[in-house]
Nucleic acid binder design. Sequence first.
DNA 1: GGTTGTGAAACGATTCACAGCT
DNA 2: AGCTGTGAATCGTTTCACAACC
Lengths: 254, 254
Amino acid sequence: MATGRTHRPATRSRGIPEATVARLPLYLRALTALSERSVPTVSSEELAAAAGVNSAKLRKDFSYLGSYGTRGVGYDVEYLVYQISRELGLTQDWPVVIVGIGNLGAALANYGGFASRGFRVAALIDADPALTGKPVAGIPVQHADELEKIIRDNGVSIGVISTPAGAAQQVCDRLVAAGVTSILNFAPTVLTVPDGVDVRKVDLSIELQILAFHEQRKAGEEAVGKGPLPQTAAGRDESADQGPDGDVPAVMPA
Amino acid sequence: MATGRTHRPATRSRGIPEATVARLPLYLRALTALSERSVPTVSSEELAAAAGVNSAKLRKDFSYLGSYGTRGVGYDVEYLVYQISRELGLTQDWPVVIVGIGNLGAALANYGGFASRGFRVAALIDADPALTGKPVAGIPVQHADELEKIIRDNGVSIGVISTPAGAAQQVCDRLVAAGVTSILNFAPTVLTVPDGVDVRKVDLSIELQILAFHEQRKAGEEAVGKGPLPQTAAGRDESADQGPDGDVPAVMPA
DNA sequence: GGTTGTGAAACGATTCACAGCT
DNA sequence: AGCTGTGAATCGTTTCACAACC
């Protein structure tokens, strides 16, 4: 292979590691809380504790964004909030559609965190005619037939799929064909999408299974005889196995 | 992770990498689908495609479990389903409680995938007296005052928190004090737990923010045309940027 | 022939540790 | 004196590529 994987711009660092990107929302949340308490500056140590990571990692993460701190002092809270928001693209408005208004879809529509941070629920879509026109979270559900029109009229580029697994790929295809390029998938299915479309998935039962694995191991260790508990000093440890990413279920629309 | 130093039994490799553990549920789901279609064997290539990962990774993952395949043939579907289930601890029954029966909690209670795979919703708990006794998904909601008793009476070791952020840490503390050692947290808050307790978190708005980051970047590249690669037709490589991990096929309970 | 299982190489992320600035 | 920013070391994960085996 002469060409190889062309991906490094080589010039300047627009290359923020994926692991860092995934933590930026965490920092943003901690910073927003500080901002609301009118805290003016914060050290990497304090902010890291609030976000549940360690301080070296946080400083490294921020170093990819630029030099936004002051040595000997810390970071300006407001300024950092702005910089991270901008980096994440949250200074603009993102209209999203939710397809599949069952239990989960309704829960998502009602979820405050959605609206709070640059995201706006532009439409709720379901295939069940009985739901059409019914307001959920104050937004009337529209019929799936309108999907393409809704996407285009609202300039939607992010779609949330909370349909049953069986419908997910089909819905996904239609979203993509209509112009959606980012999908958050709650249906327990592998979605196949064209190049250039991002999919993130959230699956409740996978998270539970991962927990069960560790739980089982704990039980095993305990039984096999080393101390009932590995004997730990600290009551609170920073790295208490926060999960990487999330998960949630899919629910029947009926 | 959470557990203390004690981790290498020194004997044999009970050290399955965390990344592998996180993928086992994906394989399991793909295998279950194959099993339902009565497919007897499957190659790493086919199974990897169904699970949305690449085959080398899948083989490496399986190699940590042991040698369960047959060279030149592939893997026996039923046998693998059993082995992975066992490894994940799904051959036993895991009673779970859901605390916080709002929109999301109700959606979780109704989620079929919960019951389908070794997990049993032992109780629904909420602090609102108006909900007490009201059935959700056929299970009557119990009042938060009963939490400790419920945990102990049912031998619950896994708890799901779907309360508002403000209540999450307090609920978490009570769950842990009552004996819960694995927590799935849907509240947008960092939970602090003692050593030996696993927490996995699921945060819908974080997922959206990560999508927004990539979305913004796409828009930027498109508009500015700051082409790091003036040529090169395709934008992305092989993987269409799935989420934290691959994706999965459907099991769909009843 | 086909496919697994696995060392070794490549890659990416985390942690260390300290120079450099306030 | 205190804290950031970052090279360098370390650790974990993915990918390669092929020997072992059916």
